[in-house]
């Protein structure tokens, strides 16, 4: 058998799961969709002594629209999000990013909470969450707390979740009026981890002056890479071809830290980040106009 031995616990309720989590702490890994955890266990990169299977917790699987927020239960499968009209109508950035996540067979099992808590800097949903200023609810036997996406991702596969906590909900604020969006990435093959990717949001006032923007990269550092200086160039301005080039240059030269690999050197990743920023900004801009 490929994975090492572990003790398997399948709680029937969240309360029971939290009890177990507080008892075992760091020895435990949570088995949500398992689409990243099980490969790592098959390679024995991970050898948790206890596996807490939370697939029975149906109360953590939901998609709710609540005034100006979309609330996703942590155990909601990625395929459920993909097939839900509430998501496509209210969170088009998320909708656009979902098909880039691995393959349909993986999305049938993978969950939104698992994807985000795994905190792979090359993954799509952490970047979408940061771009949208998402918040995550984590619970322990002592109660619950909300963590802002910006503070959540601490580094490669590192998050702010404590040993006794479980993520239960993802809260995505809806877009302001006149907001355009774009998610783009470049992978060598469909479903592979991307060499570069970016999520862009752009909010314009009635004179088409940009009053809010986000540009967040995946696989460009140890966590989703947010760009403050580049976004600063956009605020208060009308988008022009020159400005877009300037923003893409600044973002790709100064605000990311790609490490490169066998499929793309760090310089090539910067080049891709530059091109994707330009494309995504143009796409987001045209979507503001189209939706009026």
């Amino acid at each position: 058998m490929k994975p090492a031995s572990f003790k398997y616990i399948k709680p029937e309720s969240l309360e029971e799961a939290l009890e177990v989590k507080s008892e075992y702490g760091d020895e435990i890994r949570i088995l949500a969709g398992g689409q990243s955890l099980i490969p790592a266990m098959n390679f024995r990169i991970m050898q948790p002594s206890v596996l807490l299977d939370i697939n029975m917790l149906d109360s953590l699987s939901y998609i709710n629209l609540d005034s100006n927020k979309l609330r996703l239960g942590a155990m909601t499968r990625l395929m459920q999000l993909e097939n839900d009209s509430v998501v496509s109508k209210n969170s088009p950035l998320l909708e656009e990013a979902l098909p880039y996540i691995a393959h349909p067979q993986i999305r049938n099992r993978g969950t939104v909470g698992g994807n985000i808590s795994h905190a792979d800097p090359a993954a799509e949903l952490p970047v979408v969450a940061v771009a949208m200023n998402a918040r995550f609810c984590v619970e322990s036997i002592c109660g619950s707390r909300w963590i802002k996406s910006k503070k959540f991702f601490k580094g490669y596969f590192e998050t702010d979740i404590s040993a006794d906590e479980i993520m239960t909900e993802i809260e995505l604020p809806l877009f302001e009026d006149r907001t355009g969006w774009a998610f783009q990435e470049i992978a060598r093959r469909s479903g592979d981890y991307a060499m570069a990717g970016v999520a862009v949001l752009l909010t314009l006032d009635n004179d088409n002056i940009c009053n809010n923007a986000r540009i967040v990269f995946l696989n460009m550092g140890e966590a989703p890479m947010d760009t403050n200086k580049a976004v600063g160039l956009l605020i208060g301005e009308v988008l022009t071809e020159e400005l877009i080039m300037e923003v893409a240059d600044l973002a790709s030269q100064q605000e990311i830290d790609p490490i490169g690999g066998i499929h793309a050197t760090a310089n090539y990743q910067r080049h891709l980040a530059n091109i994707l920023t330009k494309r995504a900004l143009k796409s987001a801009y045209s979507r503001v106009q189209k939706h009026e």
Partner: peptide, 13 residues
């Protein structure tokens, strides 16, 4: 009803 990877699930699940 859904296509899944049998190598990314434990039999117990």
């Amino acid at each position: 009803g859904h296509a899944v990877r049998a190598c990314l699930m434990f039999a117990v699940q």
